[in-house]
Amino acid sequence: MDNPNEERLSEAGQPGAEQQAGREAAALLAKIIYDRTAQNLVAPLKWLRRQAGPGMDEALLARLLSGVDEGKPCEELKDAAQVRGRKDVYYYSASIMTAQFARVQALIEDKDMLATIAEVTRRDCELYPRPAPFSKFAGYPFRFSMDELEGAAARMQMSDAYADIGVVSASNGAKAFYSSKFLSKAYARSLFEEIEVESREWQ
């Protein structure tokens, strides 16, 4: 599923060759974004600002990234893409990271646990379809603790923004989030039983 917040860049809008320094800065920025992406992370704008060293002041950084934001990157940054989170804008190299994973990393960087659970759960329920096991959020790359997940489930029950998010259990006691916008509770429970118990029994 394409992420509407993601913007891929075209070669249009090349800023011009008159500023060699700018080209070198763009190449350096591209490398910083690439190296961060290679670690399976996105590069938050705030973090990128801290990386700005000699030859790349804040104004130049802003200009280069605005090209990415507007889909008019310079040649050096044509592999860069961005995803807009709630708390920041995040950059990544699209050649080595999917938009979907960048979106997940942006959610993690935003550190808004309820929003993360809700967005991932809604996508899973609509797309696959299936509920999202607690174990998914406990594992890579989210790594929430089970206590945190139990707490999040309780807090989401009290928020109108997450009124559609509920919890179902399998016969082995495992739990999963589901969205009533896309799955009935009974169907979600049945699908989760298949994921958690039946598919392991009938390998």
Binding site: Q100, R130, I195
Partner: peptide
């Protein structure tokens, strides 16, 4: 099985 940088999809199964 888990979200990963190269993949659009993941599945707990």
């Amino acid at each position: 099985n888990t979200p990963q940088s190269f993949s659009e999809y993941d599945s707990p199964r």
